[in-house]
Design a protein around this nucleic acid. Structure first.
Lengths: 270, 270
DNA sequence: GGGGCAAAGTTGGCTGACCAACTTGATGGA
DNA sequence: TCCATCAAGTTGGTCAGCCAACTTTGCCCC
């Protein structure tokens, strides 16, 4: 009971417990956000112990179940441990970005204080091949929109992005001016939402096109991320293949016995 | 109400609702396992809708809260969507492996039906440098154990593994014969548990040592995975750097607005 | 001092209940 | 026919309570 925190000590002040404009509307999200803040600023120390669930519940004026929900978020992000019988322990200062920073090159760049750029090299419409129909769950005979873009950070080329869009998304992309930086943002404003994504990360050699755009040798190694994104209803909205120059980017994941989402697997035929 | 499933229709048969020897002890884990089975075998169709939470609760004879806990697992694995107002939809057949398959080269290889091998090239004990003390949370003056191993799949070299162990783990590793395939398994039997891991994935060029062991050119691109693993108490037990030959392996992640754990970030200095 | 043991503290798991927010489909009117 | 409205169905979120399993601490006894 002798714990005295200089901050994070009162019960979610602001707006009479209504949804404040800063934090997420749900109670457990606000508790999670507050605890995350407290942890990353070192309020509990490097490997310190968190207060008990009951104590947190009392402090925030919520039920223990809500606190548990909040802590589950932090556990999934790899911020704290979680085992029966003992208090939670701070694991690390893992800064896990928002979902959008992973999906949108633009958001990611801006969050680092860099200026993102994108130049559309080509946009064509053509019938989908078998693999594309499979990935985007399209009927035989359906068409797809294929874009090729060179992405830059503060002017220097970083990544080549090849994206396949299903028709209902492609028509919107096709209407965009070629110098629009963020397709994702534009699509969101037109009601196309991105909620789930599967990522696969490996290494490939640069082909002629990659080499010309990125200014590297043909055959030079590139970090490749393939991504299939779906909307809230589960409908695929994008199938993209991004190729990064080495040394510019790395991908980070946390996984644990509790919640694992990453998997290593043998590369299937390309 | 007209749903008739040929399987997965009764209430978790076996052992009088006690923890069966096959499934996880917790009730929600068994429900999750059963639903995963049903989904991956296509019982609900490609993009079909799952039964309502209430219906599942009744079917399995558990409360709705338990069903929700089970479904949260599937949602985190990217198997189903989850939005307010409508039934859950099957997202994909994502086969997410167990935590151990990611941490242990041996487990991973065996799960693919390949024969893993490992040859210890060197094992030395020396004072930890600043970075190692930081990663493994060691006191100044502490020593570390450094291993270098060449990993093979069915005889062919695949990966070079450099692992830094803190003293309490290193002493155990040092006692192992040089041809032990799975260090992880051996350590687990001696009470060293692996529960949480942070992974960072990027590309590096092979140095002279890599080239000699893997049989590739110096400067050839390798897929690098750096991993820091901790035990249940949050204490670091390993800091490893694995370098894979390209084309042999890829990493997969699922993330969503609900649960995001992956992050892309600019590469800091090496 | 050391080892075993009991008790307190803490998280995991499960239940039942309630309301809010949202989606979908049907109904009915312009 | 088309559109607005409404009602039913469904998931999200929160609460209170209970017990089990586990860890840690401190006590007692040898």
């Amino acid at each position: 009971m002798g714990e005295t925190l200089t901050e994070h000590e009162n019960q979610l002040d602001g707006q009479d417990q209504k949804q404040g404009p800063d934090a997420g509307g749900a109670l457990y999200r606000r508790v999670a956000a507050d605890l995350r803040e407290a942890i990353t600023t070192g309020a509990y120390g490097e490997a310190g112990r968190l207060p008990a669930e009951g104590a947190l519940a009392e402090r925030y004026g919520v039920s223990r179940g809500t606190v548990r929900q909040a802590l589950a978020v932090l556990r999934a992000d790899g911020l704290v441990t979680s085992r029966r019988g003992t208090r939670r322990v701070v694991l690390g200062n893992a800064r896990v970005q928002s979902f959008s920073e992973l999906l949108s090159f633009t958001h990611w760049a801006r969050s680092m204080g860099e200026e993102p750029g994108g130049q559309l090299e080509s946009l064509i419409r053509r019938p989908a091949d078998a693999a594309e129909r499979e990935q985007l769950r399209l009927d035989p005979g359906a068409e797809v929109y294929v874009t090729l873009r060179l992405r830059t950070l503060s002017g220097t080329p970083v990544m080549v992005e090849r994206t396949i869009y299903p028709p209902h998304v492609g028509v919107l992309v096709a209407k965009l001016p070629p110098d629009v930086v963020s397709h994702t943002e534009h699509l969101r404003e037109h009601g196309i939402l991105f909620t789930d994504a599967d990522h696969t990360i490996d290494v490939v050699a640069a082909n002629g096109e990659d080499a010309k755009l990125l200014g590297c040798r043909r055959g030079a190694p590139l970090l490749r991320e393939r991504r299939r994104t779906t909307d809230p209803t589960g409908r695929p909205v994008e199938w993209s293949q991004d190729r990064y120059l080495p040394g510019m980017v790395a991908f980070s994941v946390h996984n644990s016995l509790a919640t694992s989402a990453l998997s290593r697997h043998a590369r299937e035929s390309d």
